[in-house]
C-alpha cells in the first residue's frame, strides 16, 4: 500500500514560490489500478515524480508497504519496488534496446525474454533488439520501449506517465490490452496518468488532480460519469466539482 500525507512541492519563480502540489493525502491499496487524470498543468506528473523521488517534494509522511520512503532517493525507492515510466523518455546513444531491458530486469535477458516484452508493447522484435536507443527511434517507438522497460522491471508499483502519448491507434489498442492483462494477471499496483477513456475505463479508481490538489477521488464507476458529464472546456473538472 502506498500512503501519502501532507505532500507539498513548490518551485521558485521570479514572482516567488509557486505551489505545484498542495498538501496531498493519498492511499492506494496494493494491486489496484489507479488512473490519475486532470487538466494540463494540474500537477499529475509532479505527483508521480514525487512518488518516485524524482522531484524535491516534502511530505509529513510517505510510506510504501509499511516502509517510510519520505527520505529515500530514487534508487532506494526503485529497490523497494517502485518504478516510473517517463512521459518523455531519454535517449541513450550506444545503448541497445536489449541492454536497457536487461538493466531493468536486473539480469541479462535472453532474446526470447526481450522479444516477449517488446511484443507486449506492439514492437516487432527483430527490428528493435539490436537497435540503439538513439535519435534513430521515433518518439512513439521510444515511448513503447520505455513501457517495455517497466514490464521487464516487473516492480510491485508501476507508474506510467501518459503512456498513450505519441503512440499510434493500433499500438494503443495493444497497449490497453497489456495494461488489462497486467492488472488481471499480476499483483502489481498500477498508477497511470492518462486522459484516454479506454485506459480510464480499465481502472479501479480515479484520482482527479487539479491546481495541485486532489479534486476528486474514488471508484471509477462513481467518478468517471462526473468527468464525462463536465461541460466547460479546459475547466471541466473544476466546473464539475462545483
Amino acid at each position: 500500500m502506498l500512503s501519502i500525507r501532507g505532500l507539498n512541492y513548490e518551485v521558485e519563480t521570479e514572482h516567488g514560490p509557486l505551489g505545484i502540489l498542495k498538501n496531498i493525502d493519498l492511499d492506494i491499496e496494493t494491486g489496484r489500478f489507479v488512473v490519475i487524470t486532470g487538466p494540463n498543468g494540474g500537477g499529475k506528473t509532479s505527483l508521480a515524480k514525487a512518488i518516485m523521488g524524482l522531484v524535491p517534494a516534502t511530505a509529513e509522511s510517505m510510506t510504501y508497504n509499511g516502509t517510510d520512503i519520505t527520505g529515500l532517493d530514487v534508487t532506494e525507492r526503485a529497490k523497494l519496488g517502485i518504478s516510473y515510466g517517463f512521459q518523455q523518455p531519454p535517449r541513450f546513444k550506444g545503448m541497445l534496446v536489449t541492454d536497457l531491458l536487461s538493466i531493468a530486469a536486473g539480469r541479462e535477458l535472453t532474446d526470447g525474454e526481450c522479444c516477449a516484452y517488446l511484443t507486449q508493447v506492439g514492437l516487432c522484435t527483430s527490428d528493435y533488439q539490436g537497435r540503439e536507443i538513439d535519435a534513430g527511434l521515433s518518439g512513439g517507438e521510444l515511448k513503447r520501449i520505455e513501457i517495455a522497460s517497466l514490464l521487464a522491471r516487473n516492480a510491485s508499483l508501476m507508474i506510467f506517465d501518459e503512456p498513450e502519448a505519441g503512440i499510434d491507434l493500433w499500438s494503443f489498442a495493444r497497449l490497453t490490452e497489456t495494461f488489462r492483462e497486467l492488472h488481471e494477471n499480476s499483483e502489481a499496483t498500477l498508477i497511470i496518468i492518462s486522459h484516454q477513456e479506454r485506459i480510464i475505463r480499465l481502472s479501479d479508481e480515479i484520482i482527479l488532480i487539479s491546481g495541485g490538489e486532489v479534486s476528486m477521488s474514488g471508484p471509477t464507476e462513481e467518478i468517471f460519469p462526473k468527468i464525462m458529464n463536465a461541460t466547460v472546456p479546459g475547466c471541466a473538472f473544476l466546473e464539475d466539482r462545483k
Binding site: 524524482l54 526503485a78 518504478s83 541492454d99 531493468a104 522497460s149
Partner: peptide
C-alpha cells in the same frame, strides 16, 4: 534518473551510460 528508476545508483548509471556509449 531513468537508470536510477531501474535500481542503479548514480555511479552505476554513469558507468552503464559510458560503457554503452563507447561500445
Amino acid at each position: 534518473l531513468k537508470l536510477m528508476t531501474l535500481g542503479l545508483s548514480k555511479e552505476e548509471a554513469e558507468e552503464r551510460i559510458i560503457s554503452g556509449f563507447l561500445k
